[in-house]
Structure formats: structure tokens, C-alpha cells
């Protein structure tokens, strides 16, 4: 202890302590976060028959969704009607945590889902029973790994998606605080469902605009980008020249000026 306290008046003592404290707090936070993540339920095989599923879905809906979307999913105020949106919409919105919304901001943000796989399926079945609409898919149904073509998927992505989601799929800003989220780290079925339902500010890309096979191409390209190692060194977020310029000015020129100062001091 006396060894340590010898340095308590050192000029670096406070910054070092501060850095240590920040590191500790950050470490504890991410550990707690990871523990909470691992508590999330594993997917459950959905074995219940359809009518029970719809019944249970109705109950969950009445408890969790009806205060905004209305008791018969007819919609009210800011919350749209859910009649005819189909199970694809429900699966996309609920399983990515966008619904229920955390707050009435510009756009529902992606977060940890509130309902587990079974509850989501029940909700989807209930909403699908109200009127026909786009049907949800499972990851297994989408054979993108086998049937998709990354190269043509890339071209399709640049033609249809990149103007909002960025050339590298990192997401981008829309007007008035709305945004196109990143498409990295999204499950294949949610990418597919987003295309057929057009959530929030996104347009619908029906099968006549982008065929189901082409949708698999796009998924394959997105997954290829996702799993591609950062070639040529640490990626600066793949958002283009802004972060590159920032690095050139801060670390780049900053360090060179530091060296110039050091060299001048050394020469004296």
C-alpha cells in the first residue's frame, strides 16, 4: 500500500485513477448487460394448434397492444389499424423489439424483444386471422445460403436499398429525425418481412418489384457484408470519408505534431 501511496501526488495519478474507474464502471455495465442478454428465452417449438394460438394471441393483444391499436386492432390516433397487415408485419415489429414502442418518438427503435417466440407467433396468428395479409416466414424457409447470389444481390441492394440504408448497409438519416436502420445483424426472416411489409418509412417491395428469388440474393449479399472481415485494417464504421477525415485530423496530424514538438524539444 505504501508503495502505491507514494505515487498519489504524481501528476498522472488522477488521470490514471479516472481511467481505471471508468474502465471498472464500463466493465461492470457490459457484464450486467451480457447477463441480461443470456437470460433471454431460447426459441420454443410452436406446437399448439392454430385456434389455441389465435385465442392466446388475442389475450396478449388485449393486454399489451390494444391500448393503442384498439380492442379490435382497428387502430386509433397515431397507431395504425392492424387489419390486413398480416403475420409478417407482426413478426417483424414484435420480434425485433420495435413493438411495443418504448416511447412516442419519430420512429420505433430496434431493441430487445418484449415477447418470446411463442407469444410473438400467437400475436401474429391473431392479427393474421383478422384479414389476409403478407405471411411471416421462418429462417429455415429462406434458403438464401443455397439459392442466393451475392453479386446480383449487391446490385439489387444498390439499386433499391442503398439510397436510404447506405452503400454498405450501415443505415442513414431520413428527414425530421427518421432514419433507415442498419441492415447488419438482422435475421434473414426479418429482412425478408421488412421488404414485403414496408415497415415505418420503408416502401413495400412486393414480389413484382423484387421477386422472392431476388430477395434471397439481397439477403445473401447483406450476410456476406456482415460476415466479411474488415479488410485492410480496422473498419472506421464503413460510413465513408467523414470518419476517415476525423481520424486523419485527430490521431494522424495530432500525433505528427506531437512528434514535431518532441523532436524540437529533444534537439535542444
Amino acid at each position: 500500500m505504501s508503495q502505491l501511496s507514494r505515487y498519489r501526488n504524481h501528476r498522472f495519478a488522477r488521470p490514471v485513477l479516472l481511467a481505471f474507474g471508468l474502465l471498472l464502471a464500463g466493465g461492470l455495465f457490459s457484464a450486467a448487460n451480457a447477463a441480461a442478454e443470456s437470460l433471454r428465452a431460447e426459441p420454443i417449438a410452436i406446437s399448439a394448434d392454430k385456434s389455441t394460438l389465435i385465442k392466446e394471441g388475442k389475450e396478449i393483444f388485449n393486454r399489451g397492444c390494444s391500448s393503442c391499436h384498439g380492442l379490435n386492432a382497428e387502430g386509433a390516433g397515431a397507431a395504425p389499424s392492424l387489419i390486413g397487415v398480416g403475420s409478417a408485419s407482426v413478426d417483424f415489429q414484435v420480434a425485433t423489439g420495435r413493438m411495443p414502442m418504448a416511447d412516442m418518438s419519430q420512429q420505433a427503435a430496434r431493441k430487445a424483444p418484449l415477447y418470446d417466440e411463442y407469444e410473438t407467433a400467437a400475436l401474429a396468428a391473431y392479427v393474421a386471422s383478422l384479414a389476409p395479409g403478407p405471411a411471416s416466414v421462418t429462417n429455415e424457409e429462406l434458403a438464401w445460403e443455397r439459392d442466393g447470389n451475392a453479386a446480383s444481390g449487391g446490385t439489387l441492394f444498390r439499386n433499391n436499398c442503398a439510397m436510404c440504408h447506405n452503400l454498405a448497409g450501415q443505415g442513414g438519416a431520413l428527414t425530421k429525425g427518421k432514419y433507415a436502420p442498419t441492415v447488419m445483424g438482422v435475421e434473414a426472416r426479418h429482412i425478408y418481412e421488412a421488404m414485403i411489409t414496408g415497415p415505418q418509412a420503408m416502401p413495400v417491395f412486393g414480389d413484382k418489384i423484387i421477386s422472392p428469388e431476388e430477395k434471397l440474393d439481397i439477403i445473401k449479399w447483406i450476410k456476406a457484408m456482415e460476415s466479411e472481415p474488415s479488410l485492410g485494417g480496422a473498419s472506421l464504421g464503413r460510413v465513408g470519408p467523414v470518419t476517415e477525415g476525423l481520424l486523419a485530423w485527430t490521431l494522424g496530424l495530432g500525433l505528427l505534431i506531437g512528434i514535431a514538438v518532441w523532436l524540437t524539444a529533444k534537439a535542444k
Binding site: 444498390r158 439499386n159 442503398a162 439510397m163 436510404c164 440504408h165 447506405n166 452503400l167 454498405a168 450501415q170 443505415g171 442513414g172 438519416a173 433507415a180 460510413v239 465513408g240 470519408p241 467523414v242 476517415e244 477525415g245 476525423l246 486523419a248 485530423w249
Partner: peptide, 13 residues
């Protein structure tokens, strides 16, 4: 084609 977030290098920014 066009991408969101297209920027020039900093000296043209």
C-alpha cells in the same frame, strides 16, 4: 444508383 451518406473527403466536405 446512389447511396445514403455519400460524402467527399474532408477537404471538400
Amino acid at each position: 444508383q446512389i447511396g445514403a451518406g455519400s460524402q467527399p473527403d474532408w477537404y471538400m466536405g
